[in-house]
Amino acid sequence: MQWFFSRSVLFLLFFSAMVSQPWSAGQDLGRGSAFAQDADAVAAKEAFEVAKELGTADAWNAFLASYPTGFYADMARAYLKKAGGQSEPAAVPVVSSGKASERQCSERAELRSQSSSEPTKITFVNKSGMYRAFLWIDFEGNLQDYGGLNPGEQITFDTYRTHPWMVATGPGDCLQIFLPAAEPATVELFRLDADNPKPSTPPRAKPTEAKKKPLVCGKNYKLRNGECVLLQNCGKNAYRSAEGDCYCKKGYQLRNGKCVWPQDKQGFEVAPWKKPGCKTWQAQCNKGNGNACRKYEETCQVN
């Protein structure tokens, strides 16, 4: 019965909107989209009045099913709430990764930034649980480092419609490439198969041979809990998490796959005396420790 009533209400709303819009063969069809927009607005108003006259939750829900957005849709939700019905959620435009086109890493060598005539924005939200680096592919096809995100962080870049952005691992391996949309877009980054490489383990030995031949992991792998786990080369000024991922130490930034101290436009390190260990070396140097003085000069002074 409720289904029949809802279908009847929809027919009534549609019929009311149609009869309110007379049409003649002599009309100027060149009005195009403007005519269609005016017709939609009038139809929505007429349907709204019919639903208002009925005043039931079914009538308002039927109206919202046909006209989910706009002024009358907002008013309909208010009337529906007053009538004690369950309101449909407002249709709010959601900017998602669907608006930013994704390209394959295999196309990396062919991609270049084109013109800078269509400014836009692109936001990356790191939901992968892994570190993500961001590199702009410039007009020559070279990669320009724009930092990275730890898990749970997000960043917005002011960019242009034809400027591709590459998402990479900490060491700089390509994971995804995105081209921004004409309007600001948000890209949510999730864990990929590339984040879980299969360990290269030798074939299983027979039970009698297992005691004699322990499991030997290949290069860049380490035996952990009976399995070969991939270890990234964290390099200097970095540390490894319990899961085996690399992160820069406090104060250091990831640049071209390496953790380095922040630099100014001239290439000089910014406040190097704030690096870890500098205070200790300076104190020991003041006490006459020559080795500490040498470390302080090499590490903590402006280069």
Rank of each mutant, 00 (worst) to 15 (best):
L143G: 06
G170H: 11
R108G: 04
L111K: 05
L149M: 09
E140H: 08
A59G: 08
G129Q: 14
S106A: 12
G70L: 02
S128Q: 12
S101H: 14
A100F: 08
T169C: 14
V125K: 05
L64M: 06
K121I: 07
G152H: 05
K82P: 02
P151T: 10
S115T: 09
T159F: 03
G84L: 06
F63M: 02
G85F: 01
Q144S: 05
V95D: 12
I122G: 03
D74C: 14
C174T: 01
A100Q: 05
Y146H: 11
E88K: 11
L175Q: 08
R103F: 04
Q144P: 01
R77Q: 14
N150G: 12
S66A: 11
L80V: 09
P171T: 10
R108L: 02
G170W: 15
F124I: 08
L143H: 00
S115P: 07
A83H: 07
W60D: 09
A76I: 15
Y131C: 11
V94T: 15
S106Y: 08
P119C: 02
W60S: 08
K82Q: 11
A59P: 06
S101P: 05
E49A: 12
T169D: 12
A90C: 01
C174M: 01
K82S: 11
D158T: 13
G147I: 06
M130Y: 15
A90R: 02
Y131E: 12
F71I: 10
N61K: 14
T120V: 02
G152C: 10
K52V: 06
K82D: 08
N61D: 12
A91R: 10
Q144Y: 03
T69G: 06
I155E: 10
W60T: 09
L54R: 03
W136V: 03
L111T: 03
D58S: 13
A73L: 14
P164C: 06
M130G: 08
P93F: 15
P171E: 09
E110T: 14
E107D: 06
P119G: 00
D138G: 00
Q104S: 08
E153C: 10
E102N: 11
A51R: 00
S66V: 04
S66K: 05
T162P: 02
N126R: 07
S117K: 12
W136T: 04
L111N: 00
D158W: 15
N61L: 10
S117P: 07
M75A: 15
A57P: 03
C105Y: 00
R108A: 02
N142E: 02
A83F: 08
V50L: 02
P68Q: 08
G148S: 03
A133C: 11
S116Y: 15
D158V: 13
K99D: 10
Q154N: 11
Q104E: 08
K82L: 10
S66W: 00
E49F: 07
R112N: 11
L149W: 04
V50T: 04
S96W: 15
